[in-house]
Design a binder for these strands. Structure first.
Length: 856
RNA sequence: GCCGGGAUGGUGGAAUGGUAUACACGCAGGUCUUAAAAACCUGUGGGAGCGAUCCCUUGAGGGUUCGAGCCCCUCUCCCGGCACCA
């Protein structure tokens, strides 16, 4: 078969797509319904557009083109999330400046995207590294500060010694830096921290207003990790201090047999002191030994890395302090232990030990011979005694729990016990979250400068009036002032060296004339913040900027956002579920509170869809070291952009993980060749009519039936991102049409091409022109289905005996049941089975199946 | 451990509770060719049979149903997310 000349076709149509108005979203248009199609904007890396980009962007493009043909006013924008470490590292290595590098790579990306036929609205292109853009990223930060959501804190953070950068919790995977795999260290530096935790509840509740796919919602809810429970104060014997424990299971309070505190717990010293006074009274020598042992233990735990301690691989260890606490519900004395399984910065840094009903507690109790008090038994086995940690009782009854005995665990007892406890001064209801505050400082050059200024004089004045808090992390906001909006953006200055400093300061710290500035408050001498923002900052709000990309006075005009928002479909990767997607929802909610975004739109994204992953031909994740990386350009060159796009969509379900297979791509190329030839042959000699009257003979030409069924199927599946089945149906239809060898009207040829058009825009454009259509096919309406061709005149009815298929008979559609039964009873194959048996029941599903239920 | 999603031919995958294996790849045979490639045609889940035909088959085992790949229960394994989180 002849191969069509895709190179010629692409060469012809790419220039015509440049600045083509049909691909532009029109602000405020009322005739058409708006549709905001968003795909995550890429980080433009030096290696060019990846096949993963090509895959997800093609899907978004197919969807955008489809929606346009369905008559929507589609906004489908693209931009660059260009701040980030790889560019900075490349700049360090090559000695070139990141601005220049960024321009180069974005040019490459843009060109590749155009070659792939993506119908982006290039008028709305944005670049997160342009001062016009990051002016507003900075503005948002100043607002966060003004509203008390940004704080400068001396904090222990994850630190990557190789990248020389602070990492957010989310950027540490298995104790290692997400980017380079180096073991993360702990460092204490002064950092800007954004209190995303203040929005934890809203971030959960807001999800109920969205149509995100289940796994995305689950991932976010899980990450936020809301836990409702009770905070209980335990008195320490011979001390005025109390240990606070948080528990999700307050109903197990009668089962507490020890308290464990983290080695870093602020009361460790106090407890050691209690121990000393106690023992000095009776046995001095012994006291020293115990204290020595505790100190030794603390020393050992400190040597363990955070990863070792929290990965769950190491065995839990602990040491008895020699001091006791009092369980307030029953006055029971329980030993206080120091345990390395207790996480200092979660909850209160102290936990109550309930060995009978917690796996980890059980193991700890067994190891150190601690008492085990069971407070729950299974409902049907009240004598049951827990003998292994696996046996955790889910639905049971309370025992050994005073007046709560016999209550149902866990809901009833949970409510009763916690309500009773919080009636006392030693217990309060408390909600804990897994979500942590967002560390917002990076000690790097290639990012948005944090627009803050520190004035020592003003700081002194401020501190005079405030009291110090006892929190482990102390806010140091005193003396810090946001750069006024009129002075934004704080432009990233040129530097000579992009290399971060070992002291943990960004290279900006070395530029004296930039750092030194005046205090926005007193006008005196002050210093700029030299840290920059994390790479998430620019992507938090980019989808708002697309609504009004050239705005100067505001981040985007309210009216324009009101028109376009919310984003109708947002395509992205699962790796961003708890990062970008959560951060940007938070920032949107914050801007909503500020009144900077439309009041009637509380959530920015209506629907979120996850794209799948393309593996290398060997079935492994693509990586340079494995040598299995697929570069889209190579295959565009060999088979054309249309074939590549169509193949990507044909590979499998949109959210699946699929291995690259060039043979399959060739198969798709063959199909496009076939379709191209089919259309060319059909329009070859004669001029075809434009409607069904042209078909001679039948009032129900097979061609009409095939085409209408195709269109109906395509429009339903396209809407649900089921592109692989649409292409399969298109292939099937073409196979059937070729077999038919009949005439086909221009209208029906047109419908065929239109179904292909979103997938293979260039060849579709060419064929559309060939059959006499005018530019551009993607601006023409989607074919209208003529329902009468969807209804079959004759149907195949399955005849079954006891649900087992025995025959298929062809009858007129809508046949009466009685008529069908008598026809079926005459069928040879059926007669055989009916003979001698008795029909107990007959089940008839209209036009589909008839089932005789017989006595066996 | 918790949460989310899976398991269908040699492979990627189709199947509103109603003919399982669409579509494609691969493979086999054929046409064309001196030959090969490409292209095209035919066949292709497993088993029994010369054959018509019959039996079996959607990770395993139960259940609901006239009828289950699909719904329910139990289990195994795989992928993704979270996790000494109290």
């Amino acid at each position: 078969m002849e191969s069509y000349d895709f190179k010629e076709i692409e060469k012809k149509w790419i220039p015509r797509y440049e600045d083509f108005d049909g691909y532009k979203g029109v602000d405020f248009e009322n005739d058409r319904e708006k549709f905001y199609m968003l795909i995550e904007f890429p980080y433009p890396s030096g290696s060019g557009l990846h096949v993963g980009h090509a895959f997800s962007m093609t899907a978004a493009d197919v969807y955008a083109r489809f929606q346009r043909m369905r008559g929507k006013n589609v906004m489908f924008p693209m931009g660059w999330d260009a701040f980030g470490l790889p560019t900075e590292n490349y700049a360090i290595k090559s000695g070139r400046n990141p601005q220049e590098i960024t321009k180069e790579v974005t040019d490459t990306f843009r060109m590749q995207m155009k070659r792939l036929g993506f119908s982006f609205d290039w008028d709305r292109e944005i670049d997160s590294t342009s001062p016009e853009y990051y002016k507003w990223t900075q503005w948002i930060f100043t607002k966060l500060f003004e509203k008390g959501l940004a704080e400068k804190k001396e904090m222990s953070i994850n630190w990557c010694p190789k990248d020389k950068i602070g990492l957010a919790n989310e950027e540490v995977i298995d104790g290692k830096c997400e980017r380079c795999g180096t073991e993360a260290e702990k460092r204490t530096i002064s950092q800007w921290v954004v209190k995303i935790t203040d929005y934890a509840d809203r971030l959960i509740n807001g999800l109920y207003d969205t149509e995100f796919i289940e796994k995305v919602k689950a991932a976010q809810i899980n990450w936020i990790g809301k836990k409702e429970g009770v905070k209980i104060d335990f008195e320490i014997e011979n001390s005025i201090h109390r240990i606070q424990c948080f528990t999700k299971f307050p109903e197990t309070i009668f089962g507490v047999t020890w308290i464990a505190i983290a080695p870093e717990h602020p009361l460790v010293e106090e407890i050691a002191a209690v121990r000393n006074t106690e023992t000095r009274n009776d046995d001095e020598g012994h006291s020293d030994t115990v204290t020595q042992e505790i100190l030794k233990y603390l020393d050992e735990t400190k040597k363990k890395s955070e990863f070792e301690r929290t990965s769950g691989v190491s065995e839990k260890t602990g040491i008895f302090t020699g001091v006791y606490a009092i369980n307030p519900v029953n006055g029971k004395r329980v030993p206080i232990w120091i345990g390395d399984y207790v996480v200092a910065n979660f909850g209160t840094g102290a936990v109550m030990g309930v060995a009978a009903h917690d796996k980890r507690d059980y193991m700890f109790a067994e190891k150190y011979g601690l008492e085990i008090v069971q407070v729950e038994v299974p409902e049907n086995d009240p004598k049951y005694v827990i003998d292994a940690y696996e046996k955790v009782i889910e639905d049971g009854l309370m025992v050994n729990s005073g007046k709560f005995n016999g209550m149902k665990a866990r809901e009833e007892a949970f409510r009763a016990v916690s309500n009773w406890m919080v009636g006392n001064e030693w217990a309060t209801k408390k909600v804990e979250y897994h979500l942590r505050d967002w560390i917002f400082s990076r000690q790097h050059y290639w990012g948005e400068p944090i627009p803050m200024v520190y004035c020592e004089n003003c700081a002194r004045d401020e501190i005079g009036g405030t009291t110090q808090s006892h929190s482990t992390t102390v806010s140091q906001n005193a003396g810090w002032y946001p750069v006024p909006a009129t002075d934004l953006p704080v432009v990233l200055p040129d530097v000579e060296k992009y290399l971060p400093t070992d002291t943990g300061e960004s290279p900006l710290a070395n530029i004296k004339e930039w750092v030194e500035t005046t205090c926005p408050k007193c006008g005196g001498k002050a210093r700029r913040e030299t840290d920059t923002m994390p790479n998430w900052a620019g992507s938090d709000w980019y989808f708002l900027r697309y609504c009004d990309p050239h705005s100067i006075d505001v981040l985007a005009e309210q009216k324009k956002m009101e028109y376009w928002l919310p984003v109708d479909v947002y395509v992205g990767g699962d790796e961003h579920n708890t990062l970008h997607l959560l951060y940007s929802r938070f920032i949107y909610q914050f801007l909503w509170d500020l009144g900077a975004v439309p009041k009637n739109i509380p959530e920015p994204y209506k629907k979120r869809i996850s794209h799948g992953v393309i593996l290398g031909p060997d079935g492994n994740r693509m990586s340079k070291s494995k040598g299995n990386v697929i570069v889209p350009d190579e295959f565009m060159e060999k088979y054309g952009a249309d074939a590549l796009r169509t193949y990507l969509m044909f590979m499998g379900p949109f959210d699946a993980t699929m291995a690259w297979n060039e043979r399959s791509l060739i198969g798709v190329k063959r199909f496009i060749d076939k379709l191209h030839n089919y259309v060319c042959t059909k329009i070859g000699g004669q001029t075809q009519g434009s409607d069904s009257r042209e078909y001679s003979g039948s009032t129900r030409p097979t061609v009409k039936i095939l085409v209408n069924k195709l269109v109906r199927m395509a429009e339903t599946d396209m809407a649900n991102f089921k592109f692989n089945t649409v292409i399969a149906k298109l292939m099937e239809t073409l196979n059937n049409l070729t077999r038919e060898e009949t005439e086909i009207s221009r209208e029906d040829l047109g419908s065929l091409i239109k179904v292909l058009a979103p997938f293979a825009p260039f060849v579709a454009e060419e064929l559309w022109e060939k059959i006499g259509g005018s530019f551009c096919i993607h601006s023409t309406p989607w074919p209208v289905v003529d329902e009468k061709y969807l209804v079959d005149e004759k149907v195949k009815v399955t005849v079954a005996i006891n649900g087992k298929m025995r025959a298929v008979i062809v009858v007129a559609a809508g046949i009466k049941e009685t008529e069908l039964i008598s026809l079926a009873k005459q069928e040879e194959k059926i007669v055989k089975y009916l003979n001698g048996g008795k029909i107990l029941k007959t089940i008839y599903v209209k036009d589909r199946m008839l089932n005789f239920v017989m006595k066996v």
